[in-house]
């Protein structure tokens, strides 16, 4: 295990850098005049990143394939959300699907 001081420094660096990322976007947006087209592009880029986060979280684990149970759960949740099911149903169905599949030995 590394020295506690070095770990604390790394955590401080991660905290400061992460805040800088969060703050930079909104600070930049304040200072520049942006066209409607650019505005649309910024909203879209946030959506694109979110979809990429959820797709990799649903399908991959440590750079490899996440197995069957997790993507199946997400798929069931997604279909329910598409059919305008209540949020609670979506989340519980996703978790339950993955849990039940694993109970039956599906990876």
């Amino acid at each position: 295990m590394n020295s506690p001081t070095m770990i604390a420094i790394a955590i401080a660096g991660l905290a400061i850098g992460t805040f800088a990322f969060r703050f930079a976007g909104s600070a930049l947006r304040e200072r520049i005049d942006i066209s409607a087209q650019a505005e649309r592009l910024m909203a879209a880029s946030a959506v694109v990143l979110l979809v990429a986060v959820l797709a990799t979280a649903a399908l991959t684990d440590d750079g490899g394939f996440a197995g069957i149970a997790r993507p199946a759960g997400v798929l069931v949740g997604g279909m329910l959300a598409w059919r305008k099911a209540p949020f609670l149903v979506v989340v519980v169905a996703a978790a339950a699907t993955a849990a039940v599949l694993r109970l039956f030995g599906v990876p």
Binding site: V47, L54, A66, G73, V74, V91, A94, A95, A98
Partner: peptide
């Protein structure tokens, strides 16, 4: 994993992002 909670996080994001799609 036993409770399928790893599937809950992506499903939450998917449900939230659907209207924007």
């Amino acid at each position: 994993g036993t409770f399928g909670l790893d599937a809950a996080f992506p499903a939450v994001l998917l449900a939230l992002v659907l209207p924007s799609l």
